[in-house]
Design a binder for these strands. Structure first.
Lengths: 229, 229
DNA sequence: CTACCTGGCCTTACGCCGTAAGGTATGACT
DNA sequence: AGTCATACCTTACGGCGTAAGGCCAGGTAG
């Protein structure tokens, strides 16, 4: 029979909600979102699972807070630069943060309670566009379009079955080997003649799309300003 | 003591893997991806949970197959139309199917084994672009850009905390009520002066972005053809 | 000084989950 | 008649989120 533990007379400084969130994000970074369980989180914090419920109401609240924490990491773009520059910077920063915390994008779906940091970021983006002369409707369009692109790109990037050229090679071999050889001719061409070429990095595609979108928005606002004068 | 069940002498026609997939998608449509458990699926099929493992190796394989089944529902676009038309049609169809099965997008992330239907769709898209004169690199860009936009847009659409104007109103009230009133001025402006206006539907934003992207691609390929001649 | 309250933690227990291991009845093929 | 594969079932295990309730130190009030 194990002696019933002297109840740990040591009274460490009490946990803060922030600390819980920090460690939760760490755990999710390491083992994916499914690796984040209340029990493991508690263990990492040196407490029992149920004690976590003194800091968060339930796991969903924890997840909501984690998403918002990610948004708060995106950072603020100075508002004295051209809107294109600001949007580009913000897009790059957003992508980077979302890649850093691969679980965040998955959480965003299914989670419908934007936190303060999320709302603040949205407000800053819209404000930047409005100050640049975008009418409300066009600002809404631009906002939706840019975010859609960023999220979608990261989604695909996270979904890639490889992280580096060697992996890609083995994966594409695996896919293409046991097939009618010409089952996906165009896909095959694209992979062998473009993706597998040295120097290729999927990440580079991001800038192409981003600049195409920003260019399109520039034309749109140009057209708007013309009709106004 | 319950009599041990007469072992159900009725021998219904054996289940097919397709039937399992069909019912699994139904369950996920109804109760979200978390509502799809092996036990509930088995129950709906009239069998025991473990019997499912004669049709799929494990749950992950089931999920992979479900994603591929969704892609197979997207349909093929006739290849005798202009690439812009084809891309637009395919984008619309993709969005529609992904909205219909809200769980699919969430599954795509974290799942790294594209199935045959997925590969076939990719091949068709790239083929369409190549036939329209896109060089390989530009086709890759366009492919990535379009899919990113579609997926990202649907992601945001699914993430919206409302499904109709009334819900939107209550939600925005909830968010804006207990706040410094001017915490998110631009967001507030956009909501009250644009989103809450009668006739607004977030879905309409989709076409704006799609056409902007298609226009940008058209310019890009125009520039390419010019340098070639 | 004592009594009480409260915040922060722990214990136990419940009903879920995916699935490993192994059993059984049916029908087809030799 | 014997063998085998197929399609199903039974039991059990460890892990999950969390409801319910207990315990103990420190602060506050009488």
């Amino acid at each position: 029979m194990p002696t019933p533990q002297p109840k740990s007379t040591v009274r460490r400084s009490p946990l803060s909600r922030e600390e819980v969130l920090r460690v939760a994000a760490m755990l999710a970074d390491e083992g994916g979102i499914s690796g984040l369980t209340m029990r493991k989180l508690a263990e990492k914090l040196g407490i029992q699972a149920m004690s976590l419920y003194h800091h968060v109401a339930h796991k969903d609240e924890l997840l909501d807070a984690m998403v918002d924490a990610v948004f708060s990491k995106i950072g603020i773009v100075p508002d004295d630069v051209h809107w294109k520059t600001a949007m580009r910077q913000r897009a790059v920063a957003t992508r980077q943060v979302l890649l850093q915390h691969a679980w965040a994008l998955g959480l965003m779906e299914s989670r419908a309670n934007p936190g303060p940091a999320t709302l603040k970021r949205h407000d800053a983006v819209i404000g930047c566009l409005r100050h640049a002369g975008f009418p409300v409707a066009l600002a809404a369009h631009a906002f939706s379009l840019l975010d859609s692109y960023i999220y979608g790109f990261v989604l695909q990037e996270l979904n890639l079955p490889f992280q580096n050229p060697e992996e890609l090679e083995t994966v594409s071999e695996t896919i293409f080997q046991d097939m009618p050889a010409d089952a996906y001719p165009h896909l095959m061409e694209l992979v062998t003649e473009h993706v597998l070429k040295p120097g290729y990095a999927y990440a580079d595609e991001f800038m192409f799309g981003l600049d195409l979108i920003l260019g399109g928005l520039e034309q749109a606002i140009g057209a708007h300003l013309q009709t106004e004068s």
